[in-house]
Design a protein around this nucleic acid. Sequence first.
DNA 1: CCGATATAATTGATCTGTCAACTATAATAC
DNA 2: GTATTATAGTTGACAGATCAATTATATCGG
Lengths: 161, 161
Amino acid sequence: MNDSQATTRARRSPAADELRTWRNFIETTDELRSTLASRLQSESGLSTGDYAVLLALSDAENRTLRSSDLASTIGWARSRLSHHLGRMERRGLIRREEAQTDSRGAEIAPTPTGTEAFRAATAPHLHAIRELFIDALTPAQLTAADEIADALSAHLKEGVH
Amino acid sequence: MNDSQATTRARRSPAADELRTWRNFIETTDELRSTLASRLQSESGLSTGDYAVLLALSDAENRTLRSSDLASTIGWARSRLSHHLGRMERRGLIRREEAQTDSRGAEIAPTPTGTEAFRAATAPHLHAIRELFIDALTPAQLTAADEIADALSAHLKEGVH
DNA sequence: CCGATATAATTGATCTGTCAACTATAATAC
DNA sequence: GTATTATAGTTGACAGATCAATTATATCGG
């Protein structure tokens, strides 16, 4: 007759708890992301996309990367990168040059303005990450966060089943 | 004076580990979010924004909400909501009516099309959440995720210091 | 009632992200 | 060599998000 819930201990269903956890998790991480983005923007005039691009370039040999390599380094689709580079170029943060070895190609490098903007942005940005993420968690929680990310990532990568 | 190669930081520094954890965490949650969004989109033709709006309306008294109430329910700025409602209205998902008690106001309700789209979207969406988040984690990890979100959220809300 | 101010909602500008279509060059096959 | 296919990158159209400015109505102090 009574095959499941609602009779004895129907206080809170596990499914509802799980869904609450989901919403708590996704909404909080979203807020964290957007808070950090807006701090970076107001402190340095760079978006997180700008920062990712400039970081990859600053780590690269000769501070220069082929567009495709840059895209795969930061994990963006080429279209997205192309649009973004157009905006960054207009703002004088990067420049594009023809690749010598492959005339389809584009080599991307930061301008002095871009290099300086990145330099100035880095310390406050790292500070904000520490303040809003690392210092918000206990060491055990930080480890747990890393493991949770690994588990989610593994599950995502193995695709549907 | 010196190039950017690592010379004296040969050991794994705690700071570098923390930063790796940060990147792992933020990139993974981002990928999770976007995977879920694209599944919802392809399975039901709704964006996560559409879904949030229709969910709030479906939970509301008379399936109707004032625009401001809707905005605060789903945590959006009114401008963002207004633009989004314009798009949803054009697609025939919701309608806007003048509020009786306040002629500045707008009352938002789903159309039959919107109600049906929401109904059809819900089960697959909840299934995807289970598959990509809940089932990816052990019960202990799920609890830890909830606590991590609580900690981050508390830290965010207490603001800078 | 009147003027100041607060609230409700929209609008326009701009930046960002996605998708599909396109151009151009390189590489491979025949 | 030429046709085919792969690769590099750009473009246009559109959905989405943010910010500042704007319109219109409500409310409150006098």
